[in-house]
Amino acid sequence: MTTHATPRKSALIIGASRGLGLAMAAEYVARGWRVTATVRGDGRTALHDQADAADGRLTVEAVDITVPEQVVALHSRVAGTAFDLLLVNAGITNGDVPVTDVSTETFNRVMVTNALSPMRVVEALQDVVLRAGTIAVMSSRQGSITLNDRAGYEVYRASKSALNQLMRSFAVRHAHDPHTLLLLSPGWVQTELGGPAAPLTIGESVPRLVDTIENHAGEGGLRFVDYQDHTVPW
C-alpha cells in the first residue's frame, strides 16, 4: 500500500524582523508550515535567530519594499516556490500629530511605506501564490472611516484607509482571480508601534490572526476582518 504525506504548506511573510511579523513567522513555523520571511536590511535580527532553530523550515530574505528594484529582485529569488499565503506586514507612524503639523516629507514617507509599497508587493508577487491561496495585508482598525470617532494619529489612519482603498481597487481589477484577499486588523497590540499601553499582547493577537486567515482559505473575494474574525466596517 502506498501512503502519501500531506504536503506542507508554505508562506511568504514580508516584514518579519520584529513585532507582529516576527511573531507571525514563528506561529506558522510552529504550525508546521515552511516559511520564507523578510527583513529590511543586511544585519542580523531576531528572525535569523528563529531561522537557526527552525530545522530548515524558515528562510530569511532581505528586501526594502520601498525600493521597487528590491521587490523585483525578491520576486526573482522566490519565483520557483508556490506559496499558499503571501502576507504583507508593513507599518510606520509619525506619532499623534495633527495633519496640519506634518511635513510633506513625513506625510510622503508614511504613505509610501504603509499604502503604496505594500500594494507594489502584492502586484509583483501575486503570481507566486497558488490560485487557491491567500494574499493578506496588515491593515488596522484605524483605517476604518466608519470607526473614526476619536481622531488622532491622522496620517497613520489616512495611510491605512488608502491601503484599504487600493486593495479594494486591486480586487475589482482582478475580479475573476480565485485568490482570497484579506485586509487584517490585529487589534491594538503591545508592539513598538502599538506601545506598552495597548490592551493586547502579541501572544493574544497573532494566533487568532493566523486562525482568521485559515478560516477564509479558499473562499476567494476580499474581506476586511480583525483578529477575532469580525468584519471591520470600511
Rank of each mutant, 00 (worst) to 15 (best):
D177R: 14
D177P: 03
P178E: 05
P178A: 02
P178Q: 06
H179F: 02
H179R: 00
T180Q: 07
T180H: 06
T180R: 05
L182M: 12
L182T: 03
L182D: 01
L182K: 04
L183K: 04
L183Y: 04
L183E: 08
L183N: 04
L183T: 05
L184P: 09
L184H: 06
L184Q: 07
L184R: 03
L184A: 05
L184E: 03
L184C: 10
S185K: 08
S185F: 09
P186S: 02
P186A: 02
P186D: 04
P186T: 01
P186W: 01
P186Q: 03
G187I: 00
G187L: 02
W188D: 00
W188A: 00
W188R: 00
W188K: 00
W188I: 00
V189W: 01
V189N: 07
V189R: 03
V189M: 06
Q190S: 13
Q190G: 15
T191V: 14
T191C: 10
T191M: 09
E192L: 13
E192Q: 14
L193F: 09
L193T: 07
G194L: 05
G194F: 07
G194S: 07
G194E: 11
G195C: 08
G195D: 08
G195V: 08
G195A: 07
G195E: 04
P196W: 14
P196K: 12
P196N: 14
P196G: 13
P196Q: 12
P196C: 13
P196H: 14
P196E: 15
A197H: 09
A197M: 13
A197V: 04
A198C: 12
A198H: 13
A198E: 12
P199F: 00
P199S: 04
P199N: 01
P199L: 07
L200V: 06
L200R: 08
L200H: 09
L200M: 11
L200Y: 04
L200D: 08
T201W: 02
T201P: 07
I202Q: 06
I202R: 07
I202W: 03
G203H: 09
G203F: 12
G203C: 13
G203I: 11
G203L: 11
G203S: 10
G203D: 14
G203A: 08
G203E: 15
G203W: 14
E204K: 01
E204V: 02
E204Q: 07
E204L: 06
E204C: 00
E204G: 00
S205W: 01
S205P: 12
S205N: 10
S205I: 02
S205Y: 01
V206R: 05
V206D: 02
V206L: 05
P207T: 11
P207S: 10
P207F: 15
P207I: 14
P207H: 10
P207G: 10
P207R: 08
R208H: 15
R208V: 12
R208C: 14
R208P: 13
L209C: 12
L209S: 08
L209Q: 14
L209V: 12
L209E: 13
L209T: 07
V210K: 12
V210Y: 13
V210R: 11
V210I: 15
V210F: 15
V210N: 08
